[in-house]
Design a protein around this nucleic acid. Structure first.
Lengths: 190, 190
DNA sequence: ATCATTTGAGGACATTTGTCCTTTCAGTCC
DNA sequence: GGACTGAAAGGACAAATGTCCTCAAATGAT
């Protein structure tokens, strides 16, 4: 739970008592490699803090291709955010790339925290704001960076992902084909 | 102000009294064609509801090219969201494509509303959530749709923009060159 | 250990997109 | 009206990327 508290404190100060009072709302779950945390088409009922492990968010596009939207690594949040907020079917699946440990809280319980605690109202807004920043950064990356630059960014920011994900997963994340990713790697190895 | 109240009510119920009490925090501003609402590098101190008009959000990328990030049309919000939330220099500029009327609220005043009203805490979180959905949709579009599909989406969702923005603006919005946009239009005209 | 299956690298050619350029047309200043 | 200016369309060629393929290495199953 310590890492979770540290994470929350990057958002807003929270007293020990307030954290202790709310921590029963979280529970620990373990995923084995290839287990799903969220499945496309089902409602995502939880938001998770990643204690340990790596996950991949992906969806099936209208050409029936499986596209990686992001990789989620430890000490950050993961959820199908829109599905979680609106409690509507998820457009994405989230799957463990390796054995993974999560701290999860149900949508209902989080709403109760929002309703009973001003600190949690604040945390909720700031989570939304942070999710926005992450998505904005992602969009900026999509817009500005070539596939090669995106690859180098991944190499720099989440290097462990390059060993845990397949070439196919990484290629769809970069928005190119496997062939082009192969050319990119060739060029970088120069 | 009516349109603003209608907009807020799509987020959360607000009593007439609560709306009346807070509406003095908003003020009306008029922009002439080509005036800036936000300038890249300056802190964005306001969030705006667009009563009338059209704006373009853009930035200068690391190749010194001006890239259109989005077009903002009436009855929606516009701001340099990250700059507004964190009160840090904006990465984007927002410029009127035609004469435009905005209802704006200062960051400070919005914080006061958050601190004094649970309804506004709620609105604030839901604005953040909505900004997230918009950004997510944008990212999904960037990821999934070809330039041609994006053009058709723009034609469908914000057709007025095609007359108000230049070919250059639209091309950078689609992520292609003018030459390719010209080819896309040729193909659609078939 | 062996065989079958999956995964990644990279060759050959086709297609798409970008770069650079010219032409056309509409607006505007004298 | 005629000359100038700037924006948009589109031609010709170059560069980047995709498609389809083969081969070799890694992984799994028996």
């Amino acid at each position: 739970m310590n890492k979770l508290k540290e994470f929350i404190e990057t958002l807003t100060p929270i007293s020990d008592k307030e954290f202790e009072d709310s921590k029963d709302n979280f529970s620990k779950i373990h995923l084995k490699k290839e287990d799903f945390f969220v499945e496309q088409g089902k409602i995502c009922r939880q938001i998770a803090f990643i204690n340990n492990g790596t996950l991949r968010t992906f969806y099936i596009n209208n050409k029936a291709e499986e596209i990686t939207a992001c990789f989620c690594t430890k000490n950050s949040l993961t959820t199908s955010y829109k599905s979680f907020i609106l409690q509507e079917p998820s457009l994405v699946s989230i799957q463990a790339l390796e054995d993974t440990e999560l701290l999860v809280i149900d949508h209902e319980k989080l709403q109760q925290l929002y309703n009973t605690s001003r600190a949690w109202q604040n945390i909720g807004r700031q989570i939304a704001e942070r999710e926005y920043f992450v998505m904005e950064q992602y969009a900026a990356t999509l817009n500005n960076e070539s596939a090669k630059e995106k690859y180098l960014r991944l190499l720099n920011e989440q290097p462990e992902v390059l060993h845990k994900a397949s070439v196919e997963d990484i290629a769809t994340y970069l928005g190119v084909t496997r062939r082009t990713l192969s050319r990119i790697r060739q060029e970088i190895a120069k």
